[in-house]
Amino acid sequence: MEEKILVLKNVKKRINKREIIKGISFEIEKGDILGFLGPNGSGKTTTLRMIVGLSKPTDGEITICGDSITRSYVKAMTNVGCIIEGPDLYNYLTGFDNLEMLGYMNKNVTKKDIMDSVELLGMKNRIHDKVNTYSLGMKQRLGLAQALLHKPKLLVLDEPTNGLDPLGITEFRNIIINLAKEKGISILISSHLISEVQLMCNKVSIINNGKVLKNISVEELVNSGEVVWILNDNEKGKNFLKKRWGIHTKIINDKLEGNFDDISVIENINSSIIREGLKIKFVERKPKTLEELFLKLTEGNQII
């Protein structure tokens, strides 16, 4: 059995009599990257705040590495690093001073640890500059460095790529994936950008209106039974597929799109198409994007 890093059990949060989180449950195992997906105002940030101890759940239980955050707060928090809503650091200090200062607040953070995390994020050259001279990308990295100082087992990132340019996002994504792979850190990322989650995460939790709509792995999500062909004669191909395999297909523009249950027979289908004398210019499994799924799930979403 794999180690459970983070467990949320029926967590609720009420602010001013309005229930903002209506019972959220999910789990993160070691090395997982969980995407926490939901539209604005769905309760992502509120949930993350509860996980990192900034606010307290009104009901339910959050456990980090087996320690409940309500009962053994300090022990639970030693295993968490986070960036909540943008990297806000002390602007008038240098990057290094920021890290050093925050390092004091954890036991056993040495200078070497600080330099290690600085090096890991590739910001050695600028670390002794003041933070207010940093670009947003640099700040984001410094925020990550800060979150990684005490070698947490869980990293909580709230919309980490907000405001980064495409290059910055790619860089950031690589860093995250490396962290999970090489250090075995579990990562919880909230986002409203589906493409981002799809590229980084191996699991997704979709929430809306304070409820989890679906806990699912990315592969499951993406694996759909849709295939797209481009043949030299789509019309002929369509008839052939219907006769030989019983597959209904549609011609959309120059593409032939089909939907079937067992995707593993695709090789046989392709060779039979070739034997029939048709030529395959292109064939692809049509990726079902999170986008579509998300829209389907959050259909009729209204802010009550």
């Binding site: 990192v52 101890g53 900034l54 707060y73 300090v74 022990k75 928090m77 030693t78 968490v80 986070c82 909540i84 809503e85 943008g86 806000d88 650091l89 002390y90 602007n91 925050l102 607040m105 954890n106 036991k107 800060q146 005490h150």
Partner: peptide, 14 residues
């Protein structure tokens, strides 16, 4: 006001 409080409060310090 400069939002750094969350850095302090999300540490393993009561």
């Amino acid at each position: 006001s400069n939002k750094t409080v969350k850095l302090l409060l999300s540490r393993a310090v009561p």
